[in-house]
Design a protein around this nucleic acid. Structure first.
Length: 910
RNA sequence: GGGCGUUUAGCUCAGCUGGUUCAGAGCGCCUGCCCUACAAGCAGGAUGUCGGCGGUUCGAAUCCGUCAACGCCCACCA
């Protein structure tokens, strides 16, 4: 036996299932009953590969416009060189569920996959890789570098898309797009030119967030503010011409920037610094004389009330500089070292200078004091380098105009956010929107289509040729095409992603093509709230700008995947499991279920591997239910037993009721609850109740009527489950009966709800309680299931479900009695008393205790009901039906109490 | 500094516009079971001052106020 089990474990799946009987490759020669041939454990590995292959071959994921209603999702494109992590796993599982379900609702579902070139992230990876080979980026030409970058992209690109296949993603792979492929690149340039023509894109010198490591400007969104424990330095600025050598003290966190000081600022209303008005002070160490200016911006309470003004290196100082026409001295090189303005510190790194200058000021007697201080410092999202505010020439996109329709559409629910709370976040950002710095000093990306003219000025055009034509008209001096020099910078990655829902259907270049007209606006977007500004908001803007329509109808924000201790998953912590390993261990369906079970929309989810285990166990449950059903022999000649008839009618109603519930949950994007609902339907209602009721005796055939209906139920359950667990459901659906090539559960329809018999449903809940009551007695009295029992209803009506109860409880008889007989154990369901006569195995004491406990509880309950009813104001004010139910509760409780008292009296022999 | 959100069983969460025994689910836990679909299982069971305080109401997990803890987002206090 042991050997067989072990052997069979490896022959788990059906290599061929083209007949009603199960045929596995072997070992038929063992002449086992075929029921034994299906392993008792589901093995997902080969099943999953096989069916994904099949779906691809049959082009079941592919969509073309037709007369059906479209359902469209565009994938949030992962970084082209990225690998799958738990966040992707969650995000894409959700999308897959939505897409598969939509298709099974008769919609023409299209899920467009693709990848993002991830300008700065990819460039950083390539730079690192080159560095490891001893190659510096600065030693390469742009062309050489891009060659390396493309090589890297081709080498690593698409790995993540392969990984998505493993989880079952039903993407239309024929439509795979890349933000830097031809169509998308052309779209980006076109949009840039168009916005430039419209006057929305401009170029100018502004204070930007400079990443000294990546050597590029960043948008505000790419800066992450973190608390940093540092010092507040109090520096002495001598007052010019003061004979006594008096000085003003300035508090700063960045003493290394004093070489860039061009003023000191005080608040005009500050009495303690009033003596500085109109004076000049001397910058420490460099001995430059700067004026004292006055502005109410300065906080009198902070530090000494004196502010050093460094217009080149601080956003606020920059604004002061503008206001008072101060000169601006840039003391930094792009890489964060000091330049020639840094005097004796030229060439040193900014942080090294900070340490050094502290000592030097100290030595020169110009340091008043230092104190510990915590402030917020911006860091680059990608390189984690401290941002340096820097004046530089950049390209910007004006946002205000674009934001108006975008803000409105979310406000009025044209575009719905799930969960809704993100509307607030969105509104706040939209109302305070700033222009978007779209240029990056990088090579990997879309090069800005601006061409500089030899004598100043530039033209913006799709190509150099076009630019040349434009330029010729603009200048009055002779010009050759080689005189034009294209801007070296590239565009922010998000400048291509923001067009994604349009550009994947080529709707920028060919605005009237069939695809864009059919698939746009897209239906749902599934993404993380962390990119609501980077991406979601901007897509909405470009959608209105270029299609005059919302780009999607619903946005589902997933939570962040955390570990079971609530920590964010990260490489550094090493607390992030590899989704591929998990899928190998639990099967893709199992992991999908694990992810979904824990993820209420918008809530962060604490991922726990045991949830995958639960998923795997559920797969196994489904698998075994199938083994049971498929193992039955049918016989057309036996009539359908009464119990089966009831079970069928009941489950039919249960199914309908659940389907209605599911539709509601899906409409609210409550996928986690939807899955739990199907889970319970399958496990509890179908497996534990329905199948147990209709199950024929061992090695007995089942009547064919019940059998057929049961297959129908199973089929419906598979279809309900398919969006969540695509692989096992396809495997079993294919195994249920002979299918044609090209058939798939994917292309079947979701089962529809019929009218549910609510009376039957509540009746069955009562029946379940009766059965549980008998089971409890068996357990308490240690009576094996094999031994049949008698069940009596005391003084009640006959139960029309007795066939079900008899079968489930193995009853020899089920009778009505007028009085409870001595020596029997009992229980109550509602107000009806049931008893099981037990000869000689009665524990009177225990029984009495049980009755007494129930009596105490019921009396307490009655008290609370009476209290309500005796309250006149309750009777007056409460809705009549509420009062009515309270009266009913009272009556029920009273009769129950009477009964319990009787029983106690009888038992105690009194 | 502003804004938003969370707090319900050991864990993760559901409880819509106050009122059917409303205090729930899954997991975990406890007890008994290898009873030929499934031990990755079956049957049975226990578990909570619904964060604290105050208010509105005949009635509050649910509405209002307040406090506390935690989390997220935004913000130029050097």
């Amino acid at each position: 036996m042991c050997f067989e089990r072990h052997f069979l474990y490896f022959c788990t799946s059906f290599t061929e299932q083209r007949s009603n009987k199960l045929i596995i490759g072997y070992p038929l020669s063992l002449e086992l009953n075929y029921r034994m041939e299906i392993a008792s454990k589901y093995n997902p590995a080969e099943v999953e590969n096989k069916w994904y292959q099949y779906w691809m071959e049959q082009k079941l994921f592919h969509s073309e416009p037709d007369e059906r209603e479209p359902y469209t999702i565009v994938i949030p494109p992962p970084n082209v060189t990225g690998v799958l992590h738990m966040g992707h796993m969650l995000n894409n599982t959700i999308q897959d569920v939505l897409v598969r379900r939509a298709r099974m609702q008769g919609k023409n579902a299209c899920w467009v996959p693709g990848t993002d070139h991830a300008s700065i992230a990819t460039e950083a990876k390539v730079v690192n890789k080159l560095a490891s080979q001893g190659i510096k980026k600065s030693d390469l030409t742009r062309e050489e570098f891009l060659k390396h970058a493309w090589d890297w992209t081709h080498e690593h690109g698409g790995i993540i898309l392969q990984q998505l296949k493993k989880l079952g993603a039903a993407c239309d792979w024929d439509r795979t797009a890349f933000t830097m492929d031809e169509v998308r690149s052309e779209s980006v340039l076109k949009v840039f030119c168009d916005l430039y023509e419209k006057g929305l894109i401009y170029r100018g010198v502004r204070m930007v967030n400079w990443d000294p490591k990546a050597l590029t400007a960043l948008s505000d969104e790419e800066v992450i503010h973190k608390e940093v424990h540092g010092k507040l330095y109090y520096l002495r600025y001598k007052i010019e011409g003061d004979p006594a050598g008096a000085y003003a003290v300035v508090a700063t966190t960045r003493p290394e920037t004093i070489m860039g000081d061009t003023a000191m600022c005080i608040n005009p209303n500050d009495p303690k610094n009033a003596h500085l008005k109109g004076k000049k002070v001397i910058v420490p160490l460099v001995n430059r004389v700067i004026p004292v200016i006055e502005d109410e911006y300065v906080d009198i309470e902070f530090g000494t009330g004196c502010l050093k003004v460094t217009p080149a290196h601080d956003v606020n100082d920059y604004m002061l500089g503008e206001k008072y026409n101060l000169p601006s001295i840039d003391i930094f090189n792009p890489d964060g070292t000091l330049n020639e303005h840094g005097a004796m510190y030229a060439g040193m790194d900014r942080f090294a200078v900070r340490t050094q200058i502290e000592k030097d000021l100290e030595a020169a007697g110009l340091m008043d004091k230092t104190e510990p201080y915590t402030n917020k410092v911006g860091f680059s999202e990608r390189t984690n380098e401290a941002i340096e505010p820097k004046l530089s020439m950049q390209w910007f996109l004006k946002m205000e105009e674009l934001a108006t329709p975008a803000a409105e559409s979310v406000e009025n629910d044209t575009i719905r956010f799930y969960p809704e709370k993100y509307k607030n976040t969105y509104r706040h950002w939209m109302e305070n929107i700033k222009d978007w710095c779209i240029s990056r000093q990088l090579w990997w990306g879309h090069q800005i289509p601006a061409y500089f003219l030899p004598q100043g000025g530039y033209v913006v055009a799709m190509s150099k040729e076009e630019a040349f034509e434009k330029a010729k008209k603009q200048v009055d001096y002779p010009l050759t095409i080689d005189d034009l020099k294209q801007d070296e910078d590239v565009l922010d990655t998000w400048f291509s992603s923001w067009l994604w829902p349009i550009s994947v259907f080529d709707g920028i270049n060919r605005p009237d093509n069939n695809d864009i007209r059919y698939y746009y606006p897209t239906s749902d977007l599934v993404t993380g709230p962390d990119i609501i500004f980077f991406w979601v908001a901007r897509m909405i803007m470009s959608g209105y700008e270029y299609r005059k329509e919302p780009c999607f109808q619903n946005v589902y924000f997933t939570g962040i995947v955390r570990d079971n201790l609530g920590r964010k998953m990260s490489k550094q912590l090493g607390n992030s499991p590899d989704p591929i390993d998990l899928m190998d261990q639990y099967g893709a369906d199992g992991v999908r279920m694990g992810m979904l079970l824990s993820s209420a929309a918008g809530n962060d989810l604490l991922f726990d591997e045991t949830l995958c285990e639960q998923g795997r166990n559920f797969n196994n449950k489904i698998w075994n239910a199938f083994r049971l059903i498929k193992g039955w022999e049918t016989d057309e000649h036996i009539p359908q037993p009464e119990s089966a008839k009831i079970a069928v009618a009941w489950f039919q109603s249960k199914l309908s009721e659940t389907i209605t519930e599911l539709n509601d949950l899906f409409s609210k994007y409550r996928l986690s609850e939807a899955l739990m609902t199907v889970y319970k339907l399958f496990w509890d209602e179908f497996s534990s109740w329905y199948l147990e009721i209709i199950k024929p005796a061992y090695q007995q055939p089942i009547d064919s009527k019940t059998y057929q209906v049961t297959l129908g139920f199973f089929d419906a359950l598979l279809r309900l489950l398919h969006p969540f667990m695509p692989f096992i459901t396809e495997e079993l659906w294919q195994a249920m009966e002979e299918r044609e090539t090209g058939d798939s559960i994917m292309t079947t329809q979701q089962p529809q709800a019929e009218e549910a018999d609510t009376v039957l449903l509540t009746d069955m809940e009562r029946v379940k309680q009766v059965i549980a009551g008998v089971r409890t007695i068996r357990l308490e009295k240690n009576i094996p299931q094999k031994e049949s029992l008698e069940l009596q209803i005391v003084g009640g009506d006959a139960d029309k479900y007795d066939s079900v109860i008899s079968k489930m409880c193995n009853l020899s008889s089920f009778t009505l009695v007028s009085e409870k007989q001595a020596g029997s154990a009992g229980f109550m369901v509602g107000t009806t008393e049931y008893t099981v006569p037990l000869t000689g195995m009665m524990d009177v004491e225990a029984e009495l205790q049980k009755l007494q406990a129930e009596l105490t509880y019921t009396e307490g309950f009655l008290q609370s009901v009476l209290k309500k009813l005796s309250n006149e104001r309750f009777v007056q004010n409460a809705k009549p039906e509420i009062v009515e139910t309270e009266r009913r509760k009272q009556a029920d409780a009273e009769s129950k109490i009477a009964l319990l008292k009787e029983n106690i009296a009888a038992l105690s022999g009194k």
